[in-house]
Amino acid sequence: MTTSNVLPIGFKPISGGIFNDATIELFGIKKSPVTNEEWARDVKRLVGEDRFFWVFHDWKTGKTRLEKDARSDKEGGRYTICIGIADAWH
């Protein structure tokens, strides 16, 4: 991050350095936690009506990625039925 870069509104540039024997690269951080108003605004803008997502998370590495949008909760619902059956079975 150079000084010519403009951070998103509300973010503060954090200079890098050595901390706890590790190198901290330059980054920006939002100056205050995300508020309800910001969350609602961002969700409406970012996801629109497609509120359902399939996400892949590698529990070993901590990496997360979006796999695809889902049109409705019906996709998850099909799995829920399976889980319900499994729960009943166990």
Partner: peptide, 11 residues
Amino acid sequence: SRLFMKMMDNP
């Protein structure tokens, strides 16, 4: 490793 989630306006 797969999650199915819903984003809510006002959690």
